[in-house]
Design a protein around this nucleic acid. Structure first.
Length: 798
RNA sequence: GCGGAUGUGGCGGAAUGGCAGACGCGCCAGACUUAGGAUCUGGUAUUUAACGAUGUGGGGGUUCAAAUCCCUUCAUCCGCACCA
C-alpha cells in the first residue's frame, strides 16, 4: 500500500487555507510567539530549494508553539521593489508591477504546496501603496529629526546599474548585486544618519541572543576605535588635525599624510612650491577605481607638498607633508601623522620616500611575553613609561595645552539612501529654491509612484521619473513658488527595514501598526535569516527600529530577541546552485516526485541546520521510505489504550523528551533521527496501541503535517492533530529499570554487564569485579583507583 | 593583517570529558519474486586466520578517561580589510 501524497496533501492544504487555523488572534491575553523568516524578493526564477529551508524550520517551531498553547504570528510577504523587476520590465516592455505580480503568484503557489502554516490573511507587499505609505512616513520622521539629509558627497557608483550604492552594498570593490565595477563619484544624495546610532548598535547587542559571528561581524563593520585628535600647526598658519589611536608614538612622527580629497590640498595649491605635481597626483587618484585604490599589494604612492611644513607640538620639529591615497578621506580627519617605526603602512611609505624612521618604543626581547615590558624611548617627557602610561600622560598633556582631545571614530558610514531608478518608493520631499527641502504633509501620503511610459534612464544616473514634468513640477507646500519633487526613489532596503512591524497590524490605515498590536507582538521572538544580511538588512532594520523606539512607536530597544542563520543548500557537486553551473534543483520537481512532507523532512534531515549542505537526490529516498513506513502503521494491529504499553513506554518518553528539546536547538536532523528510531522500535514490537499512535502522530505533525493529519483522521482520532496538545513526557519514565554498562581496565573496555539502573556504586563495583573475564585480567594486581560513572561505566586503574 | 569557524567511515552526519560512527544514503549477503532501481531480514571504520591491535587532519600535554579541554602545527572555508 503506497500512500498517495498528492491527493492527501492537496486535501489538507485546501482545508487549512480555507479555515482560520493558522490565523494569529488579536487576543492579547494569550501568551504570544512571533517567529519570523526573511520575506523573499519574488524573483523571476521562482522559488529556490534554499528558500524553504528556513520556512520549514520556523514552521516546525510555529506549529509546535501552537500545539503548546501559544498565539502564534507567522507571516510572509513580498519585498517586491527592486532592480531585477525593473530591468526585466525595460527589456520586455512590461510594467514592473505586472512582472512582480506574476512572480508573487508563482512563489505563493509554490510555498503553499509546502504546507507552511503562514497566516495568509496578513500577507504584505512593499510595493502596495498602503504599505509604502508608512515607509514614506518613517522617512519623513527621520527627516524631521534631522536624520535624513541631502548632501553632496563622494558616493559609490555602480557602473552596471547606473545607480549609487550604500557602503554595505559594495563587496570587494564591486556591486553586491551585479558585480560591476564600483567607482567614486561626487553626487548630491539623500543620506540617513545611521552613524548617530553606531554606539547603540554595538551596545545593545548585549541584550539579544544572536550568533556570536553575527555580533562580531556587526561590531567589526561599525568599527569603533578610541583615540585622540591632535592638532599640528602648519607653517601656512593653518591647523591640521589628525586622528590617532597611538598618541604615545608622537615623538616618532616623520611626516604628515593627507588624503587627495582633503580640503587643504586645494587651499595650499597656491602656497606650495610644486602645485603642478600636486594637481597631477590628485587627478590620477580620482580616476582610480575602488579596487585599485584599496588594493593592498599595490605600492604606495604620494607627493610631497613642498615648502609647507607641520610643527610637532611636543618638540617643535618641522615635519614634511605628503598627499597619498593610502589615507582615506572618509575615516577620521582624512589626515594622519605617520610613525614609520611602529606602523607597517607608514613604514612602507617612509622607505619609499627616504623619510627618517624614529624608533620610540623599545621592542621587548623574545623571552618577554606582553607589551607590558615595552618602554618608551627617544620620547622626551614619555621616556621610560609603558605604552599605557605614555598614552595617558600624552593625552592629558594634549588636552591641557589644547593641542588635542579624546575622540571616538567609527568605520560605519552614513547610509546613502537614494537610487536613480523608477521601481522604488518615491521620496516624499519637494525642493524649493527658496525654502530648500520641504517635506510633503503627512496627510498627502502615500505619495504614489506615478505611471510611466519608459523605464529607461534618459541619461545615466538620472531617475526616469525626471521625465514626468507634470508630476515633477509642483508648488512649494511652504511658499507656493514653483518647486520640484525629488525624483530619486528609496533603495530596496527601505521596505524591508520595518516589514515585521506591519505583520502585527497589516490593515491599519491610521498608523503603521496600532500601539496595542506592537506592544503585544514585539519583539520578534525568533528571526531566522541569511548571514549575507548581517551588515545590510539586519543592521539597517535595527537602526530604524531604534529610531522608532526613540520617537515612541515601539517600546523595546531591539526588534529581534533571537537570531539564527540557516546554511545554504548547495548543488549535488558541492557548489552554489546557479543556472550557469547547471546544478539547480527545482522544488516543483521534488514536490511532484516525492510530495511536500518528504521534501520538508529531507530539508531538515539534510544536515546541521546552520551549515551549508549539498543536495543529494538519493538521500531523499530515506525520508520517503520513512513516511511510507509511517503510513504502514495503519496495518499494524492496534489496541485501545490511554497510556503507553510497557514495551514502548521507555522509548516514547525518551523520544518526546529528545524531539521537544532538539527542535528548540535547531537540531532538526537528530530530532527526525529520533522519530525514525522510534518507528523502527514500533515495527520490532509489531504492534501499537491507540495512545502510542496518537503520540507518534503528534510528534511527527510539525515536521510532516499532511500525512500526520490524514492518519489522525483515518484512525478516528478527535479534532485535528495540529490543534491538539504537544505530548508530554515523564522524566522518571525516560530511564529503564536495568542498563548495560562498560567495564574498563586502565581506560580500555574489557567487558560489559547489565545492572539495575538504581544500583548503588559499591554493589556495581562488586559486580564488575566478579565478572569472570575481569576477574581473570585483574588476577592479583592491585587496584589503585575505582571510577564509577552512574549508568555508564566502571574503570579500574591497576 | 584582523575576526569567525571547520577538519570524524565510501557519502550526509551523530556523540560537548565517560562504551566513537546514532539516524539516513550507498554497498554486501539472504528472503519474497517471471523480474527488481519495490519490499523485508541481517551485515557494513581499518587491520588480523583469530585473540587482539589501531582509529576522529599532524605533533605534544592535562586526566582514571579526550573527537570533546590546553599548547602547537597543517589544511580548508567565511566575514572584514591601507580604518591610522
Amino acid at each position: 500500500m503506497l500512500y498517495s501524497f498528492g491527493e492527501i496533501e492537496g486535501k489538507w492544504q485546501k482545508r487549512w487555507y480555507a479555515s482560520d487555523l493558522f490565523k494569529a488572534k488579536d487576543d492579547t491575553s494569550l501568551p504570544k510567539y512571533y517567529p519570523l523568516i526573511e520575506f523573499p524578493y519574488p524573483s523571476g526564477s521562482g522559488l529556490h530549494v534554499g528558500h524553504p529551508r528556513a520556512y520549514i524550520a520556523l514552521d516546525i517551531i510555529a506549529r509546535k508553539r501552537r500545539m503548546q498553547g501559544f498565539n502564534v504570528l507567522y507571516c510572509i510577504g513580498w519585498d517586491a521593489f527592486g532592480l531585477p523587476a525593473e530591468n526585466y520590465a525595460m527589456k520586455n516592455k512590461v510594467h514592473p508591477r505586472v512582472v512582480s505580480q506574476n512572480n508573487i503568484k508563482r512563489f505563493k503557489s509554490q510555498i503553499q504546496r509546502l504546507g507552511i502554516s503562514f497566516d495568509w490573511s496578513r500577507e504584505i507587499n512593499t510595493t502596495d501603496e498602503k504599505y509604502y505609505k508608512w515607509t514614506q512616513w518613517i522617512f519623513l520622521q527621520l527627516f524631521k529629526k534631522g536624520l535624513a539629509y541631502k548632501a553632496e558627497t563622494i558616493v559609490n557608483w555602480c557602473t552596471g546599474c547606473n545607480v549609487v550604492l550604500a557602503n554595505e552594498e559594495v563587496v570587494d570593490g564591486k556591486c553586491e548585486r551585479c558585480s560591476s565595477e564600483v567607482i567614486k563619484k561626487q553626487k548630491n544624495q539623500w543620506i540617513l544618519k545611521i552613524t548617530g546610532y553606531a554606539q547603540r548598535l554595538i551596545d545593545d547587542l548585549d541584550e539579544v541572543d544572536f550568533p556570536s559571528k553575527v555580533k562580531s561581524s556587526q561590531i567589526n563593520w561599525i568599527g569603533r576605535s578610541e583615540g585622540v585628535n591632535i592638532q599640528f600647526k602648519i607653517t601656512t598658519g593653518d591647523t591640521l588635525e589628525v586622528f590617532t589611536t597611538r598618541p604615545d608614538t608622537i615623538y616618532g612622527v616623520s611626516c604628515m599624510v593627507i588624503s587627495p580629497e582633503h580640503r587643504f590640498v586645494s587651499q595650499w595649491l597656491d602656497l606650495a612650491a610644486n602645485p603642478a605635481a600636486m594637481r597631477n597626483y590628485v587627478e590620477a587618484a580620482a580616476k582610480k577605481s575602488e579596487i585599485e585604490r584599496t588594493s593592498l599589494d599595490k605600492e604606495k604612492t604620494g607627493v610631497q607638498i613642498e615648502g609647507i611644513f607641520a610643527i610637532n607640538p611636543v618638540n617643535q620639529a618641522q615635519i614634511p607633508i605628503f598627499i597619498s591615497d593610502y589615507v582615506l578621506t572618509s575615516f577620521g580627519t582624512g589626515a594622519i601623522m605617520a610613525v614609520p617605526a611602529h606602523d607597517p603602512r607608514d613604514s612602507e611609505f617612509a622607505k619609499k620616500y627616504s623619510l627618517p624612521i624614529i624608533e620610540v618604543i623599545k621592542e621587548a626581547g623574545p623571552s618577554s611575553s606582553a607589551c607590558e615590558s615595552e618602554k618608551l624611548i627617544n620620547s622626551g617627557m614619555l621616556d621610560g613609561l609603558s605604552i599605557k602610561e605614555a598614552q595617558k600622560k600624552i593625552t592629558d598633556w594634549l588636552e591641557e595645552t589644547n593641542f588635542g582631545y579624546k575622540k571616538v571614530n567609527f568605520k560605519l558610514r552614513d547610509w546613502v539612501f537614494s537610487r536613480q531608478r523608477y521601481w522604488g518608493e518615491p521620496i516624499p520631499i519637494i525642493h524649493c529654491e527658496k525654502c530648500g527641502y520641504v517635506p510633503l504633509d503627512e496627510s498627502e501620503l502615500p505619495l504614489e509612484l506615478p505611471e510611466i511610459e519608459s523605464f529607461e534612464q534618459m541619461e545615466a544616473g538620472i531617475s526616469p521619473l525626471e521625465n514626468l514634468t507634470d508630476w515633477v513640477n509642483v508648488k512649494c507646500p511652504k511658499c507656493g513658488a514653483a518647486a520640484k519633487r525629488e525624483t530619486d526613489t528609496m533603495p530596496q532596503w527601505a521596505g524591508s527595514s520595518w516589514y515585521f512591524l506591519r505583520y502585527c497590524d497589516p490593515q491599519n490605515d491610521q498608523e503603521l501598526a496600532s500601539q496595542k498590536a506592537l506592544d503585544y507582538w514585539m519583539p520578534v521572538d525568533w528571526y531566522n535569516g541569511g548571514m549575507e544580511h548581517t551588515t545590510l538588512h539586519l543592521l539597517y532594520s535595527r537602526f530604524w527600529y531604534k529610531f522608532l523606539f526613540d520617537i515612541g512607536v515601539v517600546q523595546t530597544k531591539e526588534p529581534y530577541a533571537k537570531r539564527t542563520s540557516h546554511g545554504m543548500i548547495l548543488g549535488e557537486n558541492n557548489e552554489k546552485m546557479s543556472k550557469s553551473r547547471g546544478n539547480v534543483v527545482n522544488p516543483d520537481d521534488v514536490l511532484d516526485k516525492h510530495g511536500a512532507d518528504t521534501m520538508r523532512l529531507y530539508e531538515m534531515f539534510i544536515g546541521d541546520f546552520e551549515s551549508a549542505a549539498s543536495w543529494n537526490t538519493d538521500s531523499i529516498k530515506g525520508c520517503a521510505r520513512f513516511l511510507e513506513r509511517v503510513w504502514g502503521l495503519l496495518k499494524l494491529p492496534t489496541s485501545d489504550a490511554d497510556d503507553f504499553s510497557d514495551g514502548l513506554k521507555l522509548s516514547f518518553n525518551k523520544t518526546i523528551k529528545k524531539v521537544s528539546g532538539e527542535v528548540e536547538d535547531l537540531k532538526f536532523n537528530t530530532a527526525i533521527a529520533a522519530l525514525m528510531s522510534l518507528l523502527n522500535e514500533i515495527y520490532v514490537a509489531s504492534k501499537i496501541n491507540r495512545f502510542e499512535l496518537k503520540t507518534f502522530l503528534l510528534l511527527l505533525c510539525p515536521f510532516a503535517p499532511h500525512i500526520s493529519e490524514e492518519l489522525w483522521e483515518r484512525c478516528g482520532l478527535k479534532g485535528l492533530a495540529c490543534t491538539s496538545s504537544w505530548p508530554e513526557y515523564n522524566d522518571a519514565d525516560c530511564l529503564d529499570s536495568s542498563t548495560e554498562i562498560a567495564i574498563q581496565i586502565n581506560g580500555r573496555i574489557k567487558a560489559r554487564i547489565v545492572i539495575r539502573t538504581d544500583e548503588i556504586k559499591e554493589e556495581v563495583l562488586k559486580l564488575a569485579k566478579s565478572e569472570p573475564s575481569i576477574r581473570e585480567i585483574l588476577g592479583n594486581s592491585k587496584i589503585k583507583k575505582e571510577v564509577y560513572v552512574p549508568r555508564s561505566l566502571v574503570n579500574f586503574v591497576v
